[in-house]
Amino acid sequence: MAAGTDRPRDRFYNNSKVRSIVWQAVLIICVVGVAWLLARTTAENLARARIASGFGFWNVTAGFDISQTLIEYSASASTFGRAFWVGLLNTLLVAVIGIVGATVLGFLIGIARLSNNWLVARLSTAYVELVRNLPLLLQLLFWYNAVLKTLPDIRDSLHLPLGGFLNNRGLFLPAPVGEGVGVLVWAMLAGIAGAIAVLMMWRRRPHQVRLALAPVALLLPPVAAWFLYGEPTAVEYPELGRFNIRGGIEVLPEFVALTTGLIVYTSAFVAEVVRAGLTAVPKGQVEAAASLGLRRGAALRLIVVPQAMRVIIPPLTNQYLNLTKNSSLAVAIGYPDLVQVFAGTVLNITGQAVEIVIITMGVYLVISLMTSMAMNLYDARLAMTERR
């Protein structure tokens, strides 16, 4: 063979693209082999233990009650699949309320940490250092056992304005009833979404225009639903009995303890994220705003925070994901979330751990991916706005 020419074997080893394809193929074969081995071993173990496999349990009657349900549910008529949806909606309710509450409280505390007021800055710092260094589980137990369970019992319920009651079994409030309740609730949610869209997406519009249009977007859907359905609701007031309270809407102490604990705990981390984002903005921006005559609050709202959001969003997304996953600690205080209802009660009754655990993990994975996608889209929109 002539000097300077490579043999076929040499050409193969020196081609980085070919080596990359070969190693990826080997890795895929190994992963598939391990997955197949695990699936086969699991199936053999289940068969040896005489444990049923498959998803036939989904349509079997559940036979157990759930303390909080956002959709219709009956222990004698609903299935395990229905119980799954009840637990999922309870988890999503806690996650949404927790994210909103932690964001608002975290932004306020993060801004307060940079305040020129010595007392406000030190109190905010103490809040962050205290809350984020205590385990979340202990905080949930504190809110549930040390705060809410010390309230009076039903006989000594605290009477609230507008006909409400507060005791160690929960908060009881007047509730709207009637055929138009569902339509009104969806209209209110649509109004909230419309107001957020006006404030966040119409950045080309002047600030005053967006502030003027946001209340219109917020009130238009509920007002339209009210006029289309007439007066769609009546009010049902809770009635205090000897051993229980009938009527109205009941807010479980487990729900209050879980949402409060998640908001307080996560807001401490959000505050640090916000503080880091604000300090990342060059001081010259603040000085330029002051030279233009803007007050500190206006400069913070119009100049500093919009620039800091590019730094804040990625770690803020992580906190949202952590809050959603931390909601699974609800099992410690008995709140009927997805883990407590589906991966707890349903698993214990059916014994089909593999299917139920896989479904539960898949749900949390989907929720996390959707949250990340929404935050990434918002981050990309901010980047496009800055380039303009």
Rank of each mutant, 00 (worst) to 15 (best):
341 V>L: 04
50 R>P: 00
185 V>W: 06
134 L>Y: 05
158 L>P: 10
187 A>T: 00
95 A>P: 03
371 T>L: 14
376 N>M: 12
345 T>W: 03
304 V>D: 06
87 G>C: 06
129 E>A: 02
97 I>A: 10
159 H>A: 14
385 T>S: 09
171 L>S: 02
37 L>H: 14
159 H>N: 13
317 T>L: 01
367 I>M: 12
59 N>S: 14
87 G>D: 04
31 V>Y: 05
263 I>G: 00
333 I>E: 08
280 A>H: 03
244 N>R: 15
119 L>H: 07
116 N>F: 02
366 V>I: 15
56 G>F: 02
156 D>S: 14
165 F>V: 05
131 V>I: 09
315 P>S: 08
28 I>E: 01
230 G>S: 10
19 R>Q: 15
257 A>G: 11
342 F>H: 03
94 V>D: 12
2 A>T: 10
147 V>C: 13
355 E>C: 00
90 N>C: 10
157 S>F: 06
231 E>A: 12
345 T>E: 14
215 P>D: 00
314 P>A: 04
109 I>F: 07
254 E>W: 01
174 P>W: 08
236 E>G: 03
75 A>Q: 15
21 I>R: 07
221 P>G: 01
124 S>R: 04
308 A>W: 02
377 L>Q: 12
73 Y>K: 06
8 P>Q: 11
136 L>D: 09
136 L>K: 07
273 V>E: 00
163 G>A: 01
26 V>M: 15
245 I>V: 13
340 Q>N: 15
281 V>P: 00
183 V>R: 09
25 A>D: 01
355 E>D: 10
345 T>N: 06
89 L>H: 08
72 E>R: 15
258 L>R: 06
295 R>L: 11
82 R>T: 10
364 Y>I: 06
252 L>D: 14
43 A>Y: 10
67 S>I: 08
273 V>T: 08
88 L>I: 10
32 V>L: 14
230 G>I: 03
101 G>A: 05
234 A>E: 13
89 L>F: 12
246 R>N: 14
100 V>C: 08
72 E>L: 10
32 V>P: 04
255 F>C: 00
265 Y>F: 15
316 L>V: 04
383 A>F: 07
259 T>L: 02
159 H>P: 07
352 Q>E: 11
3 A>R: 15
192 I>Y: 08
23 W>M: 13
